[in-house]
Design a binder for these strands. Structure first.
Lengths: 230, 230
DNA sequence: GCTTGCCAATGGTGCTATCAATGCGTCATG
DNA sequence: CATGACGCATTGATAGCACCATTGGCAAGC
C-alpha cells in the first residue's frame, strides 16, 4: 500500500514464488540476480529482501546470499503471506487453519461487541444484516461478500479488543478467498442469513451470550462446509 | 534477529518512542534527522522506516517526510510492537487484551494438541508440568517462567494449526511480561499448577475436551487476576 | 475577499560507485 | 589425509547524484 509500486511488484512476485513452493526452501538467491531479473537496482532488491526476511521467508547472510526458509519459519499470520498462500496450492489447508482461528476468535469478539460497540456500529450491523438477506436471496455474491466482510470487520473492530480488530484483515482475506475460489453456494444458505441477523440483533440488544452463540454457530457451519480435514 | 544490530538498535529506539506515546501521532520525521541522530547513513534510516511503515507506526510520503500514525493503525499483533508496548505505559490494557486473545485461542489449541501432538511432545508436556510444580513450590520464578513458556509454546505449536503456532511468540511475550512486571505472586497458586498438570495429562490421554476445559480454566484465572477491566 | 492556478522549495525515490566485513571453497603444506 | 591459510564472492553500509511528486505560498483574476 504505502510502499511503492516498484517494491510491491518485486515483493509479491518473489513472495508468491516462495509460498507456492515454486522456489523450495534452501534455494539461494543473490541481490544481483533479483536486480537484473526485475530491472531494479540493488538498493531496491535489498529492501525487498529485508521485508521478506522480516516475513520469515528468507534469511540473508554475507557471502551466503539469500536463502529461502521453510514454511515453519514463515510469518503465517501476516495478511500478505495469507493472500499469497490462498492463491497458491494448499489453499484448502490454509482455509482450514484460518477458519479454525476464526472459530476461536470471532465468537468472543462478537460477545465483546455486544458489550462495547458504539451505538452507530450497532445500528450499522443491523442494517448490514438485513441488506445481506436481500442481496443473498438475489444471488449477488460479489456485493454480498462486501457486506459480509463489512459485518465481520465491524464486529472485530468494535469488540473492545484491538487484538481482535487486528485480525479483521485476516478474516477479510478468508471470506474473500472463499467466494473467489468458488467455495460458496450460488446463493447463501438461509441459516447463515438467519445467524447473521441473530448476531446483529444480539449486539444491538447488548446480549453478549446470544451474540457469542450465534457467531459460534456461523463459524461452525463454515467449518463443516470445508473439505474434510484429514 | 536476522536483521543486523545496527537496524535493530535504531528500530527499537524509534519503535519504543512511538508506542510509548513519547512521539505522538502526527509528528513528522525526516530521514536526515534520523541518520544524524543515530549516526547512520540515510540508507539504513530508510530501511528502518520501511519496517516501521510496514508495522503501521509511520507512513512516509514525498515532501511530507515520515509521519507518525495513531495507535489504531499499528500492527498490534506483531511481537515487536507487543514488546515495546509492554515496556511502556498502558501495559495493563495491553495485558488485558492479550489475555483475552489467549482466552480465545489457547483452549482450542490445547484441544488440537490432544488430537495432533507427536508422542514426543506429549511426553515432554507431562514432564514439563511436573517440573513446573517442583520449581513453582520452590519459588524459582525465573526458571518457572521458562517452563511455563515452553509448555504453552509446545501446546500451540503441536495444535496442528500453524496459525495457533504463530501466536506462540505473543503468548511468550505476555507470560514473560507478566512476571517481569511483577504481576506474579511470589510462588504460583496451587490451582494453576494443578491445571497445568491436568492439561498435560489430557493431551497425553488424547482427550481434547478435558484439555480444552483445563486450559480454559487456566486462562480464565489469569484473566480474573488482572487489574479490573474498566 | 475569495478562488484558481502556477511556481519553487522540500524531501523521499531510486540509482551508481565504493569500501568493509565475512564466510565458504580451495589449495598448499605438514 | 588432515589442517590451516588465503582468495573470492556476496551482503552490509556509506556517499552522492538525478528525479519528481507534493505541498504551501504567491499572484492574478473574478
Amino acid at each position: 500500500m504505502a510502499t511503492t509500486a516498484l517494491h510491491t511488484t518485486v515483493l509479491d512476485t518473489i513472495g508468491r514464488r516462495i509460498t507456492s513452493g515454486d522456489v523450495p526452501a534452501g534455494t539461494s538467491l543473490t541481490l544481483e540476480s533479483i536486480g537484473t531479473e526485475f530491472g531494479v537496482s540493488r538498493t531496491v532488491a535489498r529492501e525487498v529482501m529485508r521485508l521478506l526476511e522480516w516475513l520469515g521467508l528468507v534469511r540473508s547472510g554475507r557471502r551466503v546470499g539469500i536463502v529461502v526458509l521453510g514454511a515453519d519459519e514463515w510469518n503465517v499470520l501476516d495478511a500478505r503471506v495469507i493472500r499469497w498462500r490462498l492463491e497458491g496450492p494448499g489453499r484448502d489447508a490454509q482455509l482450514r487453519t484460518l477458519t479454525e482461528l476464526r472459530h476461536a476468535v470471532e465468537p468472543l469478539a462478537a460477545a465483546g461487541a455486544a458489550r462495547n460497540a458504539s451505538d452507530a456500529a450497532r445500528a450499522s450491523l443491523v442494517e448490514t444484516a438485513t441488506r445481506m438477506r436481500v442481496l443473498g436471496e438475489a444471488g449477488d455474491l460479489e456485493e454480498f461478500l462486501r457486506l459480509d466482510i463489512r459485518m465481520h470487520e465491524l464486529l472485530l473492530r468494535e469488540s473492545g479488543n484491538e487484538m481482535f480488530g487486528a485480525l479483521a484483515g485476516v478474516v477479510a482475506a478468508v471470506l474473500s478467498g472463499r467466494t473467489h475460489l468458488g467455495l460458496m453456494p450460488a446463493s447463501p444458505v438461509p441459516e447463515a442469513l438467519d445467524q447473521h441477523e441473530a448476531v446483529a440483533r444480539a449486539v444491538a440488544d447488548a446480549d453478549p451470550e446470544a451474540a457469542e452463540a450465534a457467531m459460534s454457530s456461523i463459524v461452525g457451519e463454515v467449518r463443516r462446509a470445508l473439505p474434510a480435514d484429514t
